[in-house]
Simulated assay, not measured.
Amino acid sequence: MTPDVLCIGSILWDIIGRSPASLRLGSDVPGRITRLPGGVAMNIAMTLARFGLKPAILTAIGRDAEGDELIAACARMGLITDHAYRSEDLPTDRYMAVEGANGLIAAIADAHSLEAAGDKILRPLANGALGTERAPWPGLIALDGNLTEGLLGQIAASPLFAAADLRVAPASPGKAERLLPLLKHPRATLYVNLEEANLLTRTHADTAPEAAAALLARGAARVLVTHGGKACAEGTAGAGVIADQPPPVLVARVTGAGDTFMAAHIVAERGGADRATALSRALRAAATYVSGEIGT
C-alpha cells in the first residue's frame, strides 16, 4: 500500500493524568489516568487517518509486549507500520504528563529508544522501499521536531528529502533550537508556537503575526505560529503574513493540540484550500480537540 503521507518521529505510549482541578506543586487530587498511543508522529498520523488519509510511520518501536500492542493499535486505526524500525534490544518509548484545569503541569518524555535508533528509522527512504537518493520520496512528510539535533541536521542536508513537501511539527520550547538547521530549508513548513518562534529568531515578539514575520526575515520559506487562544498566523516568503483567531472553547486537554492543528492544516491544503481557509480549518480542529471532542 502506497502511503499518502509519511510521519517521521515518536510513536509511544502516552500516560496522561488529568484532573478538573487547578493544580500546583504537591497537589494530590482525584482525576483520570489514561494510557493511549501517542507521540508527535503518532498524534499527527491518527488525525490524518481520521480525515481519510493513509499515513505511514517511520519510527523506532521495541520488539517487546508494549511494542506489539502499539503496532496492533496502529493497525486498528489504519496506520501503516510496515516501515517502522523494530529493535530487538531497545524498549518501546513512553511519555507521561499531568494536566489540570490550569493546563499542562509537568511532563516527562522517555524517548531514548528513538534517539538511540538514529538514522535507522530513515532506511526505507534510501533502500527503495519508499525512495532512494536518485528518486527521493516526492510527497508529504510530517517530521517530528523533537528528533535529535544531529538527525534533524542530517535530514536538512539529505538528498533523500530534496523532493518532499516537508512539514515540521512543533518541538517543545526546550528543544526549539533543534529546528535551526531546517529554518532555511526551501521545502520546509515550520509549525511552532510563539515561544518557540522567539527562541528561533532570538527576538521578543508579542504576537504570532510579529513572530511569523521575524521567521520569514530569518530566511524561513513558510511558517505557522500559534499562540493558544490568541491570534495565530501563517507566513509565506514573498506573500507576507495572514492571521486568524481560534474559536473560544473550554480547554479540557492540551497534549496533542499542536499536532492536531498541523494535521488538520495539511488535510485542508491537500483538499485545495487557500491559505486563509486552511488556517481557519486548522484552528477550528485544534479548538475542537482541546475542548475534549474528537472532530473529523
Results as ranks from 00 to 15, higher is better:
H265N: 14
V249A: 11
T255A: 10
T260W: 00
G258Q: 04
A243V: 11
V225L: 10
V249S: 05
A239M: 11
V225E: 02
V241F: 07
A273I: 03
G229K: 10
L216Y: 03
L215C: 12
R222I: 08
A213C: 12
T260V: 15
A221F: 08
T277D: 14
K230Q: 15
G258W: 03
G238R: 08
A263Q: 03
A233F: 04
D244M: 10
A276S: 14
V223D: 01
G228W: 12
S280C: 10
L224Q: 11
G238Q: 12
L215G: 01
L283S: 03
R218T: 12
G256E: 01
T255D: 10
D259S: 09
A282V: 05
R281L: 13
R218Y: 08
A268G: 07
G258T: 05
G240Q: 09
G235Y: 00
E234K: 12
V254D: 05
D274T: 04
G258M: 05
R275C: 06
G229F: 07
V267P: 00
A257W: 01
L215D: 00
R281T: 03
V249Y: 03
C232S: 15
T260A: 11
F261M: 11
T255K: 06
C232V: 08
V223L: 08
R253C: 05
A243G: 12
A252P: 01
T277W: 05
G228A: 10
S280K: 13
T236K: 11
A278K: 00
L216R: 01
A220R: 02
G240S: 09
E234G: 11
